[in-house]
Design a protein around this nucleic acid. Structure first.
Lengths: 215, 215
DNA sequence: GCAGTAGGTTACTATGAGTAGGTTACTTGC
DNA sequence: GCAAGTAACCTACTCATAGTAACCTACTGC
């Protein structure tokens, strides 16, 4: 306890990049475990084996740290789904593969997913706007997929579909957490059953007919 | 400032029930405006014209207060949608009416909706379980609607559909906030277009055929 | 071996959740 | 009318934790 560094003799100095990654990993863990509110910066610092001011040095604020974690997780997820869908042949299969990859991601990266699931568990509004970029990519990616199935649909409809599908995915992933017996394959099937028909040719004709006819 | 009560001479005493409702109204307002984290109990107390300990007397904790707000809002929403759907004639129309009511609710009760939207913006896990009841009602309600359209589907599928539809609704309502030009009627149409075909007879046959055929 | 800097620390401030303990005003029995 | 009891309400705290100021130390290149 004489001098600062000697208090923790086993600790190794690291480059900023290394340390950042290490912190992100641990923070993701702790946030996922205890939630955003339930986590104290000191907890993370201690688990990293570092003092709190370093976290602030690197990430600016608690929210900043969470944000960095979220961004990493979202990037991973996006990568997962888009590579999974890369070698599909038909639009339907592409959608199917992407969905499956999404649900598998939840299973394989429980921590990252727990984090994303609680994404809204976040204070201000600015965070939303900061994440907008990645979210936009999600929507964009999904919209692109849909455009192949529905070439004649207007942009609004495509975007609406994309948002709806993403929302459905999120909620179903949540649902699956309470139903461990349901595999990623099964959820994907359910979801394909729900949205598949409207994306395939023969259903599109009927869709107009079913439209509402009341104010 | 001499004695406690004289500090606020204009303040009126209220019965617990009255005060609770007043607090809930104001808390909903403040939470919706500034978010859960951004809101201090003192803010709410001041806006009510009351001191903080009273809030704790009535609602136990900050989370408890939020919870109470959420419960009220959810009950309202559920009521809205179920009554709107009450006089529908066909299953499709029932679904349509319920969806429309949902999106209109978002427009008419902006505060309550803003609150529900940020529902996940919540610390612990216990809150989820406490709200489980109302959420279950949502799912149950939706499942019941679906059962009419898909009498031969198994429970898992119905529940999966219900979750998916609720998720889609939530996300689309969020989306609509950034697109004021989109009316509740339009979103409902989009959503009906997406899920309608799979709920109507002629699409169900094709749905099996489109099923995946890869591991 | 010294200057500069990147990585690190201790020890503080400020804010806001939650509480202890007391005060005021309404109600009820006499 | 007036005590006694209670329900509504207050002031003034404690305590946890986000965030900061000011300083220290180990590695780098010259």
């Amino acid at each position: 306890m004489e001098t600062a560094q000697q208090a923790n003799p086993g600790r190794k100095r690291m480059s900023r990049a290394e340390r950042e990654q290490q912190i992100l990993g641990i923070a993701e863990e702790v946030f996922a475990e205890r939630g955003y509110q339930g986590t104290a910066m000191d907890d993370i610092a201690q688990r990293v084996g570092l003092s709190k001011p370093m976290l602030y040095e690197y990430f600016g604020s608690k929210e900043g740290l969470l944000l960095a974690c979220l961004e990493r997780a979202k990037r991973e997820l996006l990568e997962c789904t888009s590579t999974a869908a890369a070698n599909a042949e038909t639009p339907e299969q592409l959608l199917h593969d992407a969905l499956l990859a999404f649900f598998r991601f939840g299973e394989d990266h429980k921590q990252a997913w727990a984090l994303l699931r609680n994404e809204s568990a976040v204070p201000g509004v600015e965070l939303d706007t900061e994440l907008e970029g990645i979210r936009g990519q999600q929507v964009g990616f999904t919209t692109d997929m849909l455009r192949m199935s529905l070439p004649e649909a207007d942009e609004y409809r495509l975007e609406a579909f994309a948002e709806a599908i993403i929302g459905a995915c999120e909620r179903m992933a949540l649902w699956r957490e309470n139903h461990p017996e349901i595999t990623p394959e099964t959820v994907t099937d359910h979801l394909m059953a729900l949205i598949g028909p409207s994306l395939s040719g023969e259903a599109r004709a009927s869709q107009a007919r079913h439209s509402h006819d009341q104010g």
